[in-house]
Amino acid sequence: MSEMTETTLLSVHDLSIDFFRSGAKLHALRHVDLEVRPGRIVGIVGESGCGKSTLASSLIGLLAGNAEIVSGSIEFEGQDLARLSTRQMRAVRGRRISMVFQDPMTALNPVVTIGRQMIDIQYREKRSSAEKRRIAAEMLRTVGIPDAESRLSAYPHQFSGGMRQRICIGMALLMEPALLIADEPTTALDATLEVQVIKLLKELQQQFGCAIVFVSHHLGTVAELCDEVVVMYAGEVVERGAVRDIFRKPSHPYTQALLECDPARIKTPTRELPTIPGTLPDLAHPPKGCIFRERCPKAFARCEVEAPADYAAEGAEHRARCHLLDGKARGTA
């Protein structure tokens, strides 16, 4: 199964995840493929309920207790994370893969100083406490907290939201992981702070060289930060490719609709904004055929019976799950 090339850091193949809820099985992720190369920033976009956070949690082994990996593999640095024991996963988590969460207000322990938390996170390292403290202060400086040394003894509530998210990012990078997962890291922040955090992530990525999986529903920040983009809809990856291909030549009707209804793209004021009519399908009983068919303006007979394969679209490594692309895909599929 493994087609990992040397240049791939993370390779998710055919990943399907079910949630058990009151006797019903919710097929939250279905046949997801994802590749992340070292040092790249990959954005995962989609609307609420599309499975982007489930995918992110599965990469770091933090799925909820009622979730089950039904099929597929998550290859990372020669191991299949989907098959690791709790103990083996613990050795990877925080060290090789770390995570920044959405809400900086609740991600830090409110009754422990920032310094203590940043020292504790280095528990695996054989360093003296003084050395750990020095490294913690240095990281605070790196993420732009002024007066780092003395701020180590401050508690989380003494920092503003933007500062706290900087601290969270610093803590995630403290162990110099190969992969950083950022789940909506700027959603809770104001616009001017969001811009600061995006810029910080970009700078740190260059400094530390880690790859970043950036989960967001904000198309603007994804366009700005990411090298590659994965578009998800109702638990499936419907399109993936380089950021320019996705924004310039969106090939899946869902991606096209999503881009069209973003009011940020519409420069002339209008009081009739485009929408995507219809609602998400019931993931307990996903419809036969294409998952987007019921809301797709371009659906035809084949979409009702056959789930589309991953067809190649225009551009290098640009793929989309839509029958409209069949034919262009000859020779590669």
């Binding site: 616009a191 001017t192 969001e194 811009v195 995006i198 904000h218 198309l219 603007g220 920040t221 994804v222 366009a223 700005e224 950021v243 320019r244 924004f247 310039r248 881009l259 973003d262 940020a264 793209r265």
Partner: peptide, 9 residues
């Protein structure tokens, strides 16, 4: 500070 959904903006 309103990021454009356009990588070349």
């Amino acid at each position: 500070a309103n990021p454009e959904p356009d990588p070349d903006a």
